[in-house]
């Protein structure tokens, strides 16, 4: 339990040098037989949402495959656009018994000044899938392929919040194609989809699982996908790269982080676990096939680079929009 006394000492304002050394010894001793107690997985968003499903599925698969000797206990800590939950994890500095998944708000809320902690306060462990975005237009529109868009100078797209992957991609596509795609911020993915199907915005950048159902029903037409290679779930959708826009490459990595300064042995330990998860049949069945993501394992170092790159992209975009200085 994090409410225990040791925790209280760790975060007291007066921490003597002796206590610090004692804590350091305790941590390294713990690492030898890590993990020896249950691990908390903090979900900074509500039950039933994308982050919640992802976190619980990962925890479920690890448990099912009996990969670790202890339990993973998922806990929803909502509020502050993710800031509350991520702060809970980040303040357990060096404690390898707190896990969290990465989301868009993981980057954007701190950049917007809404959170005391940023991606720098976490240790990346590994990523186990990537979720590309699919650029779509309603089937009723005249645009059959990506380059057709060049015929029209201006479009609108819907995004969830001002700073999101959809907004980022709209900007990248605008620059690459020499057109203008303005982002209209909505309050949820459902509203974005309704605006798109109702013809209130003209193009969309959607998650694979959202796009799949509408494409199957013939309501939306895919133009391109943002991954480096074609997605196994959508073999017919060309990548931006194939179409000659190699600079439009942006996917969301589904990965796990721990608080900053966890011992390197712990990171190696989790890399091993997550690699097994990423290649497992259970993960494929319970997540990849359901959400149509691209199976992919990225180790801690690679994941860290992606986190930095993603953060830099958001930061640049916000500066361009004049949201931050």
């Amino acid at each position: 339990m994090t409410y225990g006394l040791s925790n209280f000492v760790n975060h007291g304002r007066v921490v003597g040098l002796g206590l610090l050394t004692a804590a350091a010894i305790a941590v390294s001793a713990a690492a030898a037989e890590y993990p020896d107690k249950d691990i908390k997985m903090i979900i900074p968003f509500g039950a039933g949402g994308g982050s919640d499903t992802l976190a619980r599925t990962i925890a479920g698969v690890i448990e099912e495959m009996k990969l670790i000797p202890v339990k993973i206990l998922p806990e929803n800590r909502t509020g502050g656009s993710g800031a509350v939950g991520y702060s809970v994890v980040a303040k357990e500095k060096g404690d390898p018994y707190h896990l969290a998944t990465v989301s868009v708000s993981f980057f954007t809320t701190p950049l917007l000044g809404g959170s005391p902690v940023s991606y720098k306060d976490f240790t990346p462990l590994a990523a186990i899938a990537q979720s590309p975005y699919i650029m779509v237009v309603p089937t009723s529109s005249e645009y059959q392929k990506l380059d057709d868009l060049k015929k029209t100078p201006r479009f609108t797209t819907g995004t969830t919040g001002v700073v999101s992957d959809a907004a980022l991609l709209a900007k990248m596509t605008s620059n690459a194609l020499g057109i203008q795609i303005d982002s209209v911020p909505f309050d949820g993915e459902g509203e974005v989809m309704a605006a798109l199907l109702g013809g209130h915005v003209n193009v969309g950048f959607l998650n694979p699982s959202e796009a799949m159902a509408q494409m199957k029903a013939g309501k939306l037409r895919p133009l391109a996908i943002t991954s480096a290679e074609r997605s196994p779930a959508f073999p017919d959708i060309p990548t931006f790269k194939e179409l000659g826009y190699g600079e439009i490459l942006h996917t969301q990595l589904r990965g796990l982080v721990m608080p900053a300064d966890v011992p390197p042995e712990v990171v190696t330990y989790w890399e091993g676990i997550l690699q097994k998860v990423a290649t497992s049949e259970q993960w494929k069945k319970q997540y990849i096939d359901r959400f149509h993501d691209i199976p992919d394992y990225v180790d801690a170092e690679g994941f860290k680079q992606v986190l930095e790159r993603t953060n830099a992209r958001y930061e640049t975009m916000m500066k361009e929009l004049g949201i931050i200085k």
């Binding site: 039933g48 499903t53 159902a213």
Partner: peptide, 30 residues
């Protein structure tokens, strides 16, 4: 909108949509 279009129009139906996905159904027009 949830059952006919696969669009959750409210916070509650968004969670229900999570439920549909969890039991292995794909909410959508089909």
């Amino acid at each position: 909108p949830l059952f006919t279009l696969g669009i959750p129009g409210s916070a509650t139906t968004a969670v229900m949509m999570g439920g549909l996905i969890m039991i292995g159904l794909q909410p959508g027009p089909l």
